Computed example of a mutant assay.
Amino acid sequence: MASVARLEQRSFNAWPAVRTAVMDGWLLRSSGGYTKRANSANAVQAGTLLDEGLLQAIEAWYARQQLPAIFRLSPLADAQCDALLAARGYALVEPSRFLLRHGTPADCQLPAVPVEPRCTPAWLAGYAQASGLAAQQQPWHQRIVDGIGGQCGYATVEQGGRSVAWGLAVLERGDAGLYDVVVAPECRRQGLGRQLVCGLLQWAAAQGAQQVDLQVRGGNQVAEQLYASLGFVPVYGYHYRVQR
């Protein structure tokens, strides 16, 4: 569980929430509803428990943010937590996996991808359009990105003189995590995702990272196959319980 706790902590730091609170082993994260990852309660230590009183306090905290209570249940949460939330009518959604890759990307010999140390308006706009972000979500996305404290690499793949893929790598205590990986919908299934991820892996290796992690939603077979082919292996799974 020690390695799970470390990976979870790295993820919290690399993808920070706009508002946070800590309640009895749970880290509460809130960012205007943009992504469940940044708007959920997360166990921070092995065997974290949940009882009726604590559940009500967490629900009240999210209600003050005008958000439903969402729990992201990793292996750090005791199995009793999932049972309690299920009994209270919380819906199980988005089973996902935390993936990890060891070593340097010697197998990534695709064309170089430009990686910038700072986020630009063009990067934000391109990612937003390719991801289909609604106008009200875009300021929250920018606030999350602006809040990242670690060293960052913002990658953009170009094709025919225009930007077609975007991704972000964040260095955290000597390792790196990948976030915001997206290819423009009309340009998918052309190998651009592989080129993008390889570019980010190369950047991470140049910064001295020995491990790279990412999180992928279950059922996304295209992404899972790509990451497996690049040496990423599942470390653990998690899922969300959403208040109804």
Rank of each mutant, 00 (worst) to 15 (best):
Q210L: 09
V216T: 09
A128Y: 03
R173M: 07
A135H: 04
A134F: 02
Q129F: 02
G177R: 01
L110S: 14
V164A: 10
E116H: 15
Y154T: 03
A205V: 09
P117I: 12
D180V: 03
C108M: 07
A106H: 11
A204T: 06
G177C: 09
L168R: 06
V113P: 09
H141Y: 09
G177I: 08
L124G: 04
R143C: 00
Y127A: 06
Q190W: 00
Y154I: 04
P117R: 10
G208Y: 12
W166K: 07
W166G: 08
C119E: 13
V197L: 06
I148A: 03
W166S: 05
A184W: 02
V197C: 11
P121H: 09
D213C: 13
L201I: 06
L200D: 04
A206T: 09
E158M: 11
Q195D: 07
S163C: 13
L178Q: 03
A165M: 10
G153T: 04
G174E: 02
V113Y: 11
W203R: 04
R143I: 02
A112R: 15
H102S: 14
R194F: 05
G147F: 00
C198A: 08
L124S: 10
V197F: 08
A169F: 09
C108D: 15
Y154L: 10
R194W: 04
Q207G: 05
T120I: 12
P185Q: 04
L133W: 01
P139V: 04
L133P: 01
G132N: 07
A134K: 13
E116M: 14
A184E: 13
C152R: 04
T156F: 07
